[in-house]
Amino acid sequence: MPGRLKRLFGMLVMVSFVLLYIVIAMDVGNVIVMTKSTTVQMIYFAIAGLAWVPVAGLIVWLTYRRPRTPR
């Protein structure tokens, strides 16, 4: 796959993932966590706010890595 097409596909996958993740994290926070104490809410939203970063990093790594050359 050409590099530009691969980066375009990776960008579309990442934007779709982040939007879906935001909706799911907000719904879980709204339904489950809002009935808990303020400390639990802060911990949840701190973890949920950073949990998408490793997945986004993996997508970027896969998008920008060079293909293996056949032997």
Rank of each mutant, 00 (worst) to 15 (best):
F45M: 10
I59L: 15
P2Q: 12
P70Q: 03
P54W: 05
Y44V: 09
T63G: 11
K6T: 05
V55I: 15
I22G: 02
R4A: 03
M26E: 10
A56K: 02
F17K: 00
M11H: 01
V53R: 04
Y44T: 14
M11A: 14
P67L: 06
V15I: 08
A56E: 13
T39F: 12
D27C: 05
L50M: 15
M14R: 03
D27W: 15
L8Q: 04
A56V: 10
L20M: 09
T35F: 02
G3H: 11
L8K: 02
S37F: 11
F45K: 09
F9V: 07
V15G: 06
I24E: 07
A25C: 12
M1I: 06
L58K: 14
Y21H: 13
A25L: 07
T38D: 07
V40R: 08
M42P: 00
V33R: 00
G49L: 10
V40L: 08
K6H: 03
K36I: 02
R4D: 05
V60P: 00
G57Y: 14
I22E: 08
K36R: 10
A48I: 15
I47M: 09
V28K: 13
A51E: 13
L50S: 14
M11K: 02
G3F: 10
L62M: 10
L62K: 08
Y64P: 03
Y21R: 01
Y44D: 08
L58S: 06
D27A: 15
R68S: 04
I24Y: 12
Y21G: 01
R71N: 12
P54K: 03
F17G: 01
A46D: 11
R71F: 12
T63F: 02
L58Q: 05
A48K: 05
T38C: 03
F9R: 04
L50G: 07
A46H: 07
T63L: 03
F9P: 01
W52I: 01
Q41Y: 12
Y64I: 04
K36P: 00
A51F: 09
V33P: 02
M11S: 08
